[in-house]
Amino acid sequence: MNELDPRIHQVLDGELPLESLPPELRATVLRLERAAGLLRAGEAPASVAGRVLAELRRPRTATPGRRVLRWLTERHAITIALRPIWSLALAAVLAAVVLVPTHGTPPLLGAQEGIAQFVGHFPGASSVDVVGPFTDWRSGVIPLRDDDHDGVWSAVVVLPAGAHEYMFVVDGERWVADPLAGRYVSDGFGRQNALLIVRPVGR
């Protein structure tokens, strides 16, 4: 770096008049003053401490809504103090909710709908379906279940209130009228259908 002429320092410090300098030094002083002016015009980069203090001193004029919005959108460090045992319990509950099958959401029953429970004893069967007008007489729409493999198959179904003819289809081919139905009607094809009368739940 070039050293400045001491007379320039004296002029900048106000000890000498500018006019006392030779023209080349006078030009240097003018350049220096222009540069200093530019530096004064721009904001000086503040230090971290300076910025913090400036933030602390900044007048708080924001509305409550704006403050809430700012709180929601700014980043916060959140600390949750939790005993490990509660963490494990929470994890177990979440796992149960996610993993345990719910068999679909419970049905909302209409005023003219009721619940029908079909139960049949078919030991050794590999499948049992209940069919009727409510399945368009198709198998596979309402399969009965035998979860504990004791030969007792069952299904609980939402049906419109009223009389319903039905039969069980065992292993996809054997048609059986429910022996526990208590009511039977001729099916017009040489057999008998069981007859179930469903009551509306809101009766």
Partner: peptide, 8 residues
């Protein structure tokens, strides 16, 4: 029972 019921 209602919760278990399925709608065909």
């Amino acid at each position: 029972q209602v919760n278990r019921a399925r709608r065909p």
